[in-house]
Amino acid sequence: MNKQTYFKKFKNIKYPISRRGLLISFMFYSFFHFSRKLYANGEIGGPFRDRFQSFRQTFRVEPNPEEAKRIINNIIKGRDKRNNLILLNAPDIAENGNVVPINFSVNCSMNGNDYPKVVHILVLDNPFPEIAKFFFSNQSGSADLAIRIRMRQSSEVVAIAEMADGTVGEDRFFVDVTIGACS
């Protein structure tokens, strides 16, 4: 085969992706790859990307109470805690860690700016400390709520209320668990 005819072959080939498109897609991929590491380290984004909560867990993880403290610091962000804002109720001794009934109530009139925007519930010694977030509005008559949670070992349950004004309240309750759940 002649040299010129050999190179003509490549000119006629039509690639499915152009060179420009390939470069742009590589740029996007590198951005996502880089940003995912930042999410994991907690440098950008909310505290709820910690420990890869958004991905499917396919391995057993040991609890890390230091990371739970970091998540709480990310929520409060150095604001002063208001006294008697939120009241958390839980049993002192829970025989079954799979079903622990808890309930909370927030002291506020639900008018104007005086309502809780978000209420977080965390268990410090669980491998995945965040349990639930509740987003209230003016139309929900009072911020009373009851739910059942899982606990692996006896630890503190924390409820944090973020009001619409920007103020923060916190309440803690220690629960003894005899048989832990596997969460």
């Binding site: 909560q53 622990v100 349990i131 139309q139 739910i147 059942r148 899982r150």
Partner: peptide
């Protein structure tokens, strides 16, 4: 939602127990 308007929302993670029960209040 009440009459098509969203009044309450909650986000759950793997810490919620099986057969999840929740009771709340609306006006």
């Amino acid at each position: 939602r009440y009459n098509g308007k969203q009044i309450f929302r909650s986000r759950w993670y793997s810490g919620v127990s099986e057969n999840p029960y929740m009771s709340f209040k609306i006006k």
